[in-house]
Simulated scan of single mutants.
Amino acid sequence: MMPDSTTPILVVGLGCQRGCDVDTLLALFHTALDAEGIDPRRINALASIEHKRDEPGLLALANVLRLPLQFFAAEQLAVYDTRLSHRSALAFTHTGCHGIAESAALALAEQLSGCPARLLITRQKKLQATFALAYAG
């Protein structure tokens, strides 16, 4: 479902190591949002990199939260490199972009809203996963 043009778009971007379980992702999701006082029901969608399309933890998270999950190619995410709060050489080596969570959140927020997005919550890391929240509208 596409939000109307007056509703702000909130998108969570996620990165994770292979095999990261849904409980780790869910804990990170709630911890990051709770710390900022953001109601999880305000989140419109989840986003990550194409490499994670078959990652069971991410797929389970989208199912548990009942949110759409969009994947982007590394080339689509690389255009956001200059807007990242943290640029990871390791992420670049493995994926071709310097930050998955932040760039995926920005990319989908802009795609859904049709206007520039900004990071509301910069990269948060817990165990095997990273989280970021982008806002547009």
Rank of each mutant, 00 (worst) to 15 (best):
F72A: 00
H51M: 13
A47P: 08
F71A: 01
E55G: 00
A62T: 05
R42Y: 04
P68I: 05
L59C: 13
F71N: 08
R66L: 03
A60G: 04
L69Q: 01
L58A: 02
L65T: 07
L46A: 05
F72Q: 05
L67E: 01
L46K: 03
L65Y: 03
D54E: 15
L46C: 03
A73T: 13
D54F: 04
G57M: 07
P68M: 05
R42W: 00
I49Q: 01
R66T: 14
R53F: 05
A73F: 06
L46M: 12
G57A: 07
L58W: 07
H51S: 11
E55F: 07
L46W: 05
H51K: 14
L69A: 00
R66V: 03
I49N: 08
L65N: 03
F71I: 00
D54P: 00
L46F: 04
A60I: 00
V64W: 14
L69F: 01
N44P: 00
V64K: 15
A45F: 01
L65V: 10
N44R: 13
I49G: 04
A62W: 09
N63A: 14
A73S: 04
A60D: 15
G57F: 03
D54Q: 14
R41D: 11
L58Y: 00
L67D: 06
R66F: 03
N44V: 02
K52E: 05
E55K: 06
A47D: 07
H51T: 03
I49H: 03
I43Q: 07
L59E: 10
L59F: 05
L61F: 12
L59Q: 15
N63H: 15
F72P: 08
P56H: 13
L46Y: 01
